[in-house]
Design a protein around this nucleic acid. Structure first.
Length: 599
DNA sequence: ATGTGGCGGGG
DNA sequence: GTGTACGCCACAT
């Protein structure tokens, strides 16, 4: 038995003899520098919860008529109320979509819960481990050849079969190896097509000294490495990735362009293209309206979705994003001109080499700027960086709440059905208070605004689905203005307590920031508090977004009603002191000073 | 007013 | 794959 610590980078599962095997991918630090490890866990089983119609025992009997592993009676809280549920353990994650409808159709089954949680996400939550943090595993080292799911001949790869607990280790983690890449294609006919247009350059930049353009043409430019053909170029790229073993590889639009393009060209040229840790092919995972390129075991981050989330711009080209982040313009060669630069050779070709490297370097710089906050978000939300980097902020909030719910033994609400979603969408609801601006040029303006109005209201009025009073009650409560809703003062609701914890944690970190003199420490703490702020900011919408599991029409209405109440009262109060509001919106207003006090 | 379709990034 | 997750704009009806 060995005990190994490593930085958890990626997670998935494979099937061995019909049984699921969770694979934790990471890099060991310290003892053996930067060496890859795959830890296998065969002991984790998928499960869902069943709400029994009335008698749990007859429900259990019915469920056992289906091919399930085990059914257990468990206590869980559902919207704050203790309930007895049935935990139905299944043999395989894919049994969940296969059996859930059959289970739901049973006459003794009232409802099913937590039936759409991807297996690897379930694992991370139930084990209490976080990607981008260090974990400690204990188990047997295995010979790579004896593991069917791993087909690489990387001699440095360590494989361990977990036998016992997986522990989260709290502590700082060292800087990770980050490499960016970018390809250029010879495309005389407009947008490149992989069955026609060859790759002419692959550029790389990194934080470990590697900076290079691999190409089939020669150059006096020192960074250019010339290879004989496109096949060799692709092979060289994958060799470098596998040799250097970067923790994170980044590109710009690499999910839907660069990586699939290289992969398609490799297929056409009938050569392998393997940059994964386990020797598997590049996978394209469909994520709604787009795809993610996955090289198993490595973290591939496409910066494009990150920038879309992070900045509000008219366009999101690398040039535009770079300019916004660094305040300097970068040289650009128009896409439809690239083949001309390539064909004409000479000075133009040299310019193309420079441009290509510059794109990789720019992408790297963007990554350096954006990865810290995404790593922090990963550590707070507890899902893989590759997922976090592609998630909309609403999804982040949802997965954060899902983990929190698990921690306090709350059963997770189901996702709204298509019907429920469109029903919610159809409802119009009153938002913040807006006072149309008084026309004219005003002098002596004062601005007034509430700092995080909605979260403060959620916390102070304890607005949560589990504190909403639906029937008669003799408990102490807060009464919302305008809308007919009341919320218990005690106990603290699920959402208010989560938002409260977030804001409290942020204050703690901000205080630590003030205390420390170490600039590096300060910077790290600053990123942490920024991540908490980002998440807290996106939590305001939980009750009003139609797709949310924690959607609550009543809570959303109450939050905005209180918001309107606060701002209107504050405006009225200000008038007593001689201020006349000339414009107001949601959480603040502008006023002129008239000098006329009332009373 | 409401519905439907296309598109973003990449070369 | 415990699958199929956006939001805006143009244009048509």
């Amino acid at each position: 038995m060995e005990t190994i610590r490593f930085i958890l980078l990626d997670i998935d599962y494979v099937t061995e003899n019909g049984k699921p095997v969770v694979r934790l991918f990471g890099n060991q630090r310290g003892i053996s520098k930067g060496e890859p490890i795959i830890a296998l866990d065969k002991s984790f089983k998928p499960y869902i919860y069943v709400v029994p119609e009335n008698d749990p025992e007859s429900c259990i009997k019915q469920i056992y008529t289906l091919d399930v592993d085990e059914v257990k009676r468990v206590m869980k809280k559902d919207v704050g109320v203790e309930k007895e549920l049935l935990k139905v353990v299944l043999h395989h994650p894919q049994d969940v979509p296969k059996l859930r409808d059959k289970i739901l159709a049973l006459s003794e089954v009232k409802d099913i819960r937590e039936h759409d949680i991807p297996f690897y996400r379930r694992y991370l939550m139930d084990k209490g481990i976080f990607p981008m943090a260090e974990v400690e595993v204990r188990g047997k080292i295995k010979a790579p050849k004896s593991v069917p799911s791993v087909v690489t001949d990387n001699e440095k790869l360590c494989i361990l079969e977990i036998d016992g607990k997986v522990n989260e280790i709290n502590g700082k983690i060292p800087d990770l190896k980050v490499m960016s890449f970018d390809i250029e294609v010879r495309n005389p006919k407009g947008m490149p097509s992989s069955d026609r247009d060859e790759i002419i350059m692959i550029s790389l930049a990194s934080n470990f000294g590697l900076q290079r353009v691999i190409s089939t043409k020669e150059s006096s430019f020192e960074y250019v490495e010339t290879v004989e053909d496109e096949k060799t170029m692709i092979k060289r790229f994958s060799d470098i990735v596998n040799l250097e073993n970067p923790d994170i590889i980044v590109g710009y639009s690499s999910d839907n362009f660069d990586l699939p393009y290289i992969n398609d060209r490799a297929k056409k040229l009938k050569i392998p293209f393997k940059i994964s840790v386990d020797g598997s092919d590049l996978k394209s995972l469909r994520r709604g309206y787009t795809s993610a390129a996955v090289a198993r075991g490595r973290v591939h981050v496409d910066l494009y979705p990150i920038m879309r989330r992070h900045l509000t711009l008219d366009r999101y080209t690398l040039e535009r994003v770079y300019e916004e982040l660094f305040g300097e313009e970068k040289d650009d060669i128009k896409g439809d001109k690239i083949w001309e630069y390539w064909d004409s050779g000479g000075e133009k070709l040299e310019k193309l080499f420079e441009y290509s490297l510059d794109d990789a370097v720019s992408a790297f710089k963007v990554a350096e700027k954006m990865l810290p906050i995404n790593r922090e978000l990963t550590r707070i939300i507890g899902q893989p960086l590759s997922d976090i980097s592609r998630m909309a902020s609403g999804q982040m909030v949802e997965w954060f709440l899902i983990r929190k719910a698990y921690e306090v033994n709350e059963v997770i609400p189901n996702k709204p059905s298509q019907y429920e979603y469109s029903k919610r969408r159809g409802l119009t609801y009153v938002g913040g208070y807006v006072k149309d601006p008084v026309k004219g040029l005003h002098e002596n303006i004062v601005a007034f605004d509430f700092k995080s109005l909605y979260p403060s209201i959620i916390i102070s009025k304890n607005i949560s689905p589990d504190t909403l009073i639906t029937g008669a009650s003799n408990e102490e409560y807060h009464t919302a203005p305008e809308v007919p809703y009341k919320f218990k003062k005690e106990p603290k609701g699920f959402i208010p307590s989560v938002i409260g914890d977030l804001l409290e944690e942020r204050v703690k970190i901000k205080n630590l920031m003030i205390e420390t003199d170490d600039p590096v420490e300060k910077r790290i703490l600053n990123v942490q508090q920024e991540a908490l702020k980002t998440l807290a900011n996106s939590m305001y919408g939980v009750y009003g977004y139609a797709r949310f599991r924690w959607y609550s029409r009543e809570c959303a209405d109450a939050v905005t009603a209180w918001g309107r109440d606060y701002i209107k009262n504050t405006m009225k109060e200000a008038e007593k002191y001689g201020f006349k509001a000339i414009y107001a919106d949601t959480d603040g207003f502008y006023a002129t000073y008239t000098g006329k006090t009332k009373n």
